[in-house]
């Protein structure tokens, strides 16, 4: 990867892959942020998160919920609006090399999405299982839910919207229409968030046992399957890349 950057930097132009974006935005930003969140859970989950009717719950947990939700809506709107406003309107003026550079930017977005999906769908979702097997839930907005449902899910949704909009507005291959697998891989995990409504309604309407495999949770499973859209998306990306890396320099293509 370093060689990729160095070889083109020597020519006095921006590198194909911006390493700083990859490591800072794609990897470090999410990891550092979620490690801080996990530390906060560890400290204030036990000291202030056991009783939703206690004053300290309102001090340490509810403000997070009240701040994060509007912030996430604003962030998603800003990302989508900015990428649309600054879209490429005439692809005929864009060189193949610039398109390849944009593919690398797109990969950085996808690395960030993969990172965000991991923290949201894997780390904080299974964590929810052990918290609710330990602490009797007395609210929809438990410490685990405030982080899992209303923080990590919207964050990967915002990142997914960014990925999709970047490709749709910057890459000619994806600007020619709406990619079905891309739509699946972004909209499916997005629909997990609205499914939270069913989940919370079910938990309050029925006397639910703490059973992770309960049918009430199957909506999450169904929309989780949509992550397999990444397979079709990769087939599309590599189809475009094959055309960009031409036979004149790489006969193996």
């Amino acid at each position: 990867m370093a060689a990729t950057s160095a070889s083109v930097s020597a020519a006095g132009e921006a590198p194909l892959l911006n390493q700083r974006n990859l490591w800072c935005f794609g990897i470090a930003y999410y990891c550092v942020y979620y490690l801080i969140v996990r530390w906060y859970e560890g400290v204030y989950g036990w000291s202030a998160g056991l009783d939703a009717f206690a004053p300290e719950f309102n001090t340490y947990w509810m403000p997070i919920l009240k701040i994060e939700v509007p912030l996430e809506f604003a962030t998603a709107s800003f990302i989508a609006s900015y990428l649309w406003k600054t879209r490429t309107r005439d692809f005929s003026t864009v060189s193949n090399r610039e398109i390849l550079r944009r593919h690398f930017h797109h990969f950085v977005w996808l690395v960030a999405y993969a990172n965000a999906v991991y923290w949201g769908a894997s780390y904080f979702t299974e964590q929810d299982g052990t918290w609710h097997q330990t602490i009797v839930r007395d609210t929809d907005f438990t410490p685990s839910h405030i982080i899992e449902f209303y923080m990590t899910y919207p964050i990967y949704i915002c990142t997914g919207i960014g990925c999709f909009m970047y490709s749709y507005t910057r890459l000619p291959y994806f600007a020619k229409g709406v990619s079905l697998p891309y739509l699946l891989v972004v909209v499916g995990p997005f629909m997990i968030f609205p499914n939270v409504g069913l989940n919370e309604w079910g938990h309050t309407f029925w006397w639910m046992e703490e059973l992770f495999v309960a049918p009430l949770h199957y909506g999450f499973v169904f929309f989780g399957w949509f992550s397999l859209g990444i397979l079709g998306l990769f087939a599309q990306i590599f189809d475009d890349l094959t055309g960009l890396i031409g036979k004149d320099v790489c006969p193996d293509v």
Binding site: A114, A121, S122, V185, G224, F226, L228, I230
Partner: peptide, 14 residues
């Protein structure tokens, strides 16, 4: 990397 972690997320939820 992308395939690994996106599949991880979806498969783990499932």
């Amino acid at each position: 990397f992308i395939l690994f972690f996106v599949i991880l997320g979806g498969f783990h939820v499932h």
